[in-house]
Amino acid sequence: MPQDRAQRQAVGNQFSCVSSRRHRIRGNPPPRLLLPAGRRGRPAGWSGLPASRGGAVRRAGAARGRTIELRQKGAGMSAEKGSSVVLALGLCVGLIGGAAILGRSLQEIRKGERYVTVKGVAERDVKADLAVWGLKVRVAGNDLVEAGRSLEATRAKVLQFLSEKGFSAEEVSSQDLKVSDRQANDYGSGNTRDMLRYVVEATVLLRTRNVDLAQRVSRMTDELVRAGVVLSTKDDWQSAGPRFIFTQLNTIKPAMLAEATKSARAAAAQFAADSGSAVGSIRRASQGLFSITNRDQSAPGQGEGGGGSEDESDLNKRVRVVVTVDYVLKG
């Protein structure tokens, strides 16, 4: 039996080779060797399936591969589409939030721009606490030595006058001794030789806190005239009387600033009431200058926050300050 099977296989192989060469020459595919049914022997290379069925199986496998590939591509496109949708939604939410924040900021800025500028004034009447009185005496003569002696005698009379009125030696001092030769002046006129040549001047300065006494004594200078003393005001921009000065400004500054600010807020409240708003916090504030003037005399050119008067002959003073405040309006 084994020998018969080997012979059949050898015959089949020989037939297959001959048939293959014959059909290869003709250009046709070689015929497949079909063995009788029931025989278990199969030639080498036989697939056991018809050619048409094998092609169908291969095409079905390729179709399944393409289907799987398309499904994978579809899944990737779906994932990309989902991420794009999420990104678009996030962008929309960000734009809406940014617009809301910007609108609120513009609203706050618009609220901050609503303000009113007002001025507040505070005035206070005070009394001077320092008196400064310069008593200037002058003597003329052709003899310088004699003019100097005459000046010393005149100055002694002034010192005695002040001492008798109650001023201490610490409150009185001598200063500003000045001698001028009229003939030595290049700008002098031609008739200077007819005038006394030497002019000697001196100043007795009184500086006291007893302002009431200084004011009373300043009205008694006629006694000096009767004693032969002439007080000079030549080339002096100040008056012959004492100057009364208020030196305690720093002690009243805080209270006056508070009063001026209160006045400004009252004015701002009136403006706010007329516009249907309420007064808020201070946006900006500036302080003017403190002015000190004579109580019964307005300073020349005195304005809001202006300086004081040059005339200080009044014992009673008026202190004035002006502040400018910007208040925010609410509502």
Rank of each mutant, 00 (worst) to 15 (best):
M1E: 10
Q3T: 07
A10W: 04
P29M: 04
P30T: 05
L34Y: 04
L34V: 12
L35Q: 05
P36A: 14
G38D: 02
P43T: 14
W46T: 07
G54R: 03
A56Q: 06
A56V: 14
A56T: 12
V57P: 10
G61R: 10
G61C: 00
A62F: 10
A62S: 12
R64T: 11
R66T: 07
I68R: 15
I68C: 04
Q72F: 04
K73F: 12
G74W: 06
G76L: 13
A79R: 15
E80D: 12
K81H: 12
K81T: 02
L87C: 08
G90D: 13
G98T: 14
A99N: 08
G112E: 14
G112C: 05
E113D: 12
G120A: 14
A122D: 03
V132L: 10
G141F: 05
V145E: 14
A153H: 11
T154W: 00
F167T: 08
S168I: 09
S173Q: 13
D176I: 03
D176P: 01
K178Q: 06
V179M: 10
Y187E: 06
Y187R: 10
A202T: 06
V204M: 06
D222H: 05
V225T: 11
V230A: 12
D235S: 12
D235V: 01
W237P: 00
A240S: 11
A240T: 04
F246Y: 14
Q248M: 04
I252L: 15
L257S: 03
A268E: 08
S277T: 13
S291K: 00
Q297S: 11
G301S: 10
G305T: 01
G305C: 03
G305F: 00
G307A: 14
G308W: 08
S309T: 09
E310H: 07
D314K: 13
D314S: 15
N316P: 04
R318S: 05
V319M: 05
R320M: 01
D326R: 13
V328R: 07
